[in-house]
Design a protein around this nucleic acid. Structure first.
Lengths: 353, 353
DNA sequence: CTGAAAGCGCTTACAG
DNA sequence: CTGAAAGCGCTTACAG
């Protein structure tokens, strides 16, 4: 592999001049530049990224840190990764997905000088990784938020998202609206769950309705469990908002197994997911599509602005999900006469064509 | 950030000795070692990965190269990434997902000296990225195969997978079996599609049945299109094998819209996907689960063996998918009397509880 | 068992 | 406009 020295020799210049041409850091006489460029071409020279990094203490590599991804369909995460990678690339940075499991690994990575900055996903309300990040003095931006709001972040605006979902349901006459959240290990709650829950509780309070919250795993089995819990504990709910992508399909299946039809008996909105997921389910789910493509890019931009000393980036960016109507929301059934719906025992009919 | 020099000074040794202790590359007197370890601890020293890489021309970083991921649920890819990352970590390597769009980017990465080796996913039958990889002289392993078989690879054994699927369907009496493949840009065919198709054609020939192949996009819309094509072009098919994860849900929805019940009218197996995807669909799909967890790990091992000069790794590893029965395969309906099934016009019934 | 020193391939003041 | 040289923080023969 050709080095800068080889290029310099072939072009009859010093390696400093080669460096200036490659980086555009200084004026170089046109004919000198031409000679150097020719030499680079002829030798198929490519700058050694590691040496450059050591000399300049910059690598132009950004890490997107993510805890172990589960094996469930996770289109949102992929959208984050890809849009952040594109945004970074446009500004001359590489962005890589770095699966990092424990704090020690993270310190190793951050202290190693290998990345110029980091993006952190799946931020918890209390997140020791954030502390590590702060301690490491590596510039970073969060995708999500901790409980304290003075770190730079981009996040889904869950409060607005839930308000939009509740508003949509109310426009169909729904008053008794349940929330299906994601069950989390104790003390390890993602901010999105907490914030969505808080927004939901506010909305219910404003409506003068008691809240109905169910938390289950983000799996099909979790979704079926949610169907049973809703059926048993909140039989008068006419609509449900999911903040649990992975449980969406299972919830519909579970309801159907219980003889409850979507949306005739129960309307459903799945918040913070993708329209693709909505389309997979029958009936097609009305979803609040996560702004992952925008947020990934904005996160990359925010981080790079920080690295390059750009001052005018807002430290916090919030974007709500977008309503994508499907076929899972319908008029609220009239429950005024019966306190509990009569579970239909016959096989239920299809609701879409 | 403390450097090795700081540690050496504090421990009253040379930096060489510090290096020996950190890397375990040479014997060091116990008390010297203890002094050095104490100094490391006190200074919270962490080796600079970039400097180490430059000096040793090894980074212990592996890149998993993936072309732009689409926004569809792609659990299999995530499984590959995570299992490969775990396998690498156990052997002291970091593995990152590097979204790489064009050949130029890839050359930049490979020539930069930043990664010791590469794993390439979504390998096409003819793949210019593979040529780049070979030219770069960076060690690599493929996940998938090109048309020539002498490069190291791990891959799903599609021939066996299709045979198992056909065998399963035959045990239910099916003879007319269609294949739903993935539509690809011309000249850009993933090996898996081609190999699955070939295995299917062989199986049909052995059965003495004409093949019925439909190719659609890997989306819900693609799946619905497949339902129509099957209904119009191959109305006597009693079973279908999908090699198109993204179209699975849409196919079931499309069939139902056409009044065809799964599995009463048509049995379905979705090959090379995850059991999680199968569970999301109603009825739960019988799937051939991709051996992504094993293959990711094996790919990482194969690559690292190569890097470390381990000779006894088989250059090619093939593992078939595993049958995970769901509720989408049933006895073949008797079609002997009618050449074309009477499309049911009434709403269809559920098939699972 | 330990150290002095060269070298990995660049960048970047500094001098001219 | 161009170059000589120091330095980034390590590893690794080589010598003792």
């Amino acid at each position: 592999m050709a080095t800068m020295r080889d290029v310099a020799e072939r072009a009859n210049v010093s390696i400093a001049t080669v460096s200036f041409v490659i980086n555009g850091t200084k004026r170089v006489a046109p004919e000198t530049r031409a000679r150097i460029e020719a030499a680079i071409e002829e030798l198929d020279y490519r700058r050694n990224v590691v040496a450059r990094a050591l000399a300049s203490s910059r690598t132009r590599i950004l890490a997107l840190l993510h805890p172990d991804l589960e094996a469930r369909p996770n289109a949102t995460v992929i959208q984050f990764v890809m849009s952040a990678a594109h945004g970074a690339r446009e500004r001359g940075y590489d962005l890589v997905l770095w699966p990092v499991n424990d704090d020690e690994q993270m310190s190793h990575l951050l202290a190693g000088g290998l990345v110029d900055g980091a993006l952190l996903m799946e931020v918890q309300i209390r997140d020791s990784r954030v502390d590590r990040l702060v301690a490491s003095r590596v510039p970073f931006a969060l995708i999500g938020r901790t409980e304290n709001d003075d770190l730079p972040f981009v996040d889904i605006d869950f409060a607005t998202t839930i308000d939009l979902a509740v508003g949509h349901l109310r426009s169909f006459g729904h008053q008794r609206i349940a929330l299906v959240a994601q069950r989390t290990k104790a003390g390890n709650e993602p901010g999105r769950i907490m914030r969505a829950k808080a927004a939901y509780l506010d909305a219910m309070a404003a409506l003068g309705r008691p809240p109905a919250v169910v938390a289950v795993e983000g799996t099909s089995a979790g979704g079926r469990e949610a169907a049973h819990k809703l059926h048993d504990d909140f039989p008068d709910a006419t609509a449900v908002i999911l903040v649990n992508e992975g449980a969406s399909a299972g919830l519909v299946k579970g309801l159907r197994a219980l003889g409850r039809t979507v949306p005739d008996d129960l309307s459903i909105i799945s918040a913070s997911t993708t329209r693709e997921l909505g389309e997979m389910i029958e009936p097609s789910l009305t979803v609040m599509a996560a702004p992952a493509p925008q947020l990934g890019r904005l996160a990359a931009d925010a981080l790079i602005d920080q690295l390059e000393g750009v001052q005018d980036t807002p430290p916090h960016i919030l974007i709500p999900c977008t309503l994508v109507p499907g076929q899972s929301v319908g008029p609220a059934p009239d429950r005024s006469s019966t306190s509990r719906p009569e579970p239909k025992r016959e096989r239920n009919a299809q609701t879409d064509s």
